[in-house]
Amino acid sequence: MPMEVLLVEDSPGDVRLTQEAFRDANPSIRLHVATDGVEAMTFLRREGIHANAPRPDLILLDLNLPKMDGREVLAHIKEDDNLKTIPTVILTTSDAEADIVKSYQLQANCYLSKPVQLDVFESLVGSINDFWLTKVKLPQQK
């Protein structure tokens, strides 16, 4: 069964990069994109246009998003009994201590700082795939 990953990211450039990186790492992964917090919640709750959205196996979440900020999204996910079982990885440019702490307080599964260099970034994505989508045991239910 192909892995479903939801990427919540507002920068299209970053989106494409991530897509490319995932394609290299594991082509079978289906990468869904939400460009702001509201859309992310709609997707996860399978509302509106996302009524038929699949339940992601992993969420990659940027912190600085328009409309609903990534921290809020994180909070919502982790408060929702239904959604909180989905591993939520913060993937953001910020490496501020405050952001790290806050994310973990909101029960992010882990925090990753986007590397500046491409190859390092690609390696990171590979690690994500390797760890979160291969090694880690995820709950079965959809």
Partner: peptide, 14 residues
């Protein structure tokens, strides 16, 4: 500055 630079660098590398 990092942000756009990252785009430029990454995509040029790609």
């Amino acid at each position: 500055l990092q942000e756009p630079l990252r785009m430029v660098a990454s995509y040029t590398q790609l």
